[in-house]
Design a binder for these strands. Structure first.
Lengths: 243, 243
DNA sequence: AGCGAAACGGACGACACCTTCCGTTCTCGT
DNA sequence: ACGAGAACGGAAGGTGTCGTCCGTTTCGCT
């Protein structure tokens, strides 16, 4: 990547509206005049306000909430919002990066759990609880943005780790033989369908549904019924892609 | 097997275009000169064209497809569409009345099945298949329109019949003891979440999910895990109600 | 054929949201 | 304190959908 100085604003994202990786890293070279992230104090304050407002608005009104409303809620003008986040995808991604990072961390931990089934259950329960309560986060989770390469990369990584976890579960014999990795995606999508109501309802519905499904995934009773052919993962991706 | 009663329904439903069919208050003059539905031939033709176009558009673009697009697809002007269907709800309701009637008929038959479990499975499988393929129909199914009294009444009736069926299943001991009627709604909502993709994918995902869930509903293995408290039905209704 | 009324559809105003322009305000290093 | 320029936000242009008005066309009865 070329030099990413916040030089030309029309170049927009040049001032790193994106990645989370560099916190106190290497950007001190050229100008450390302002904060460690190279933003002026008022800019940084507005950025946080916008993100908080976006979380509220997206959770309340869905991921399609008008950006004007987000800006108003944040107490900034529309232009400021667009300056920080040139696209809706950028805003959504950043707004829920914390929760999504949390999810990824969960997966990271679960994959090292000596009891793979416990690890899997923990991941699923925790993640679905989060998704149930934060509608916007759920939308971000289920939406695959064409441009956001790093975001998608994280997703793929998480998926690979889940695959590893599932594989270990199957080896341990706790998952039914015909379980497929895509069944996990199925679970998350199903949860999404069940979580359309107000948060409390969404949470209750989610927990009951997940209870049924995790039960169904177990080898234990592994009774007759074989569900039809599993989906391919790429079929289940990006089902709610914008545009 | 099913007699073809549903065929007669699409003809009988054309009595009223909607709740506010009174334009000029010129009723009561008893002019039944035109067809039995009181519509002129071109009006009836356009009405059918609009309904067909609506089904296509709603299935393809979702229930929020612009009405202008529906009108264009039908080859009529926007005014004609609004004249026949004053609100979006009226159009959606009429467009999918046939499929919804089919669903109701299915339930009607299943409730008399001597084997209640088979009846329940048939209903669930058939309905979810329909909902998977017809996105607009699914939206109509999951949306509770404030004004459409008759439509909601049918829904309630179907629900009561399903309750009866479930009750018989539980008495027969084929449903786990802690099964709740709302779990059926849960299933339909979950299916909705899984069916966002293209039809083939939606169908495959639906069938697999329903396989898992019906399996989970059975008393047979009825293994340890008790899902959390069930939802109240009214909580699960109208989750996607339009403004 | 002719007439009255029903039905049609192009066009229009209203509205919400998106996105950018540009003059103004504020920050930060000197 | 001061100046350069980064950042701000009001306002305006653009787009798409809604819902309706009104002159024109088509139907069906006599």
């Amino acid at each position: 990547m070329a030099d990413q100085r916040s030089r030309t604003l029309d170049g927009t994202t040049a001032d790193r509206t994106g990645t989370s990786a560099d916190r106190q890293g290497q950007e001190g070279q050229g100008n450390d005049r302002q904060g460690s992230d190279g933003l002026r104090s008022d800019a940084r304050r507005n950025r946080e306000r916008i993100l908080a407002a976006a979380r509220e608005a997206f959770d309340a009104q869905g991921i399609d909430a008008p950006l004007t409303a987000v800006a108003r809620r944040a107490g900034v003008g529309p232009a400021t919002l667009y300056r920080h986040f040139p696209t809706r995808a950028a805003l959504v991604t950043e707004a829920f990066r914390q929760q999504l990072d949390h999810c990824h961390q969960l997966i990271e931990e679960a994959v090292t759990d000596p009891d793979p089934w416990r690890g899997l259950c923990t991941v699923v329960h925790t993640m679905t609880d989060i998704l149930a309560v934060h509608r916007g986060c759920a939308a971000a989770f289920h939406t695959r943005f064409p441009g956001a390469v790093d975001f998608n990369a994280e997703r793929d990584r998480a998926e690979a780790q889940l695959a590893e976890l599932v594989s270990r579960c199957r080896q341990a014999g706790v998952l039914r033989a015909d379980f497929d990795l895509s069944d996990l995606s199925l679970l998350f999508l199903a949860q999404h369908g069940v979580a359309a109501g107000p948060p409390e309802v969404a949470l209750a519905a989610t927990r009951r549904l997940v209870g049924y499904l995790l039960q169904g995934f177990r080898a234990e009773g592994a009774p007759p019924l074989p569900p039809p052919a599993p989906l391919r993962l790429d079929q289940v991706h990006g089902v709610a892609a914008p545009d």
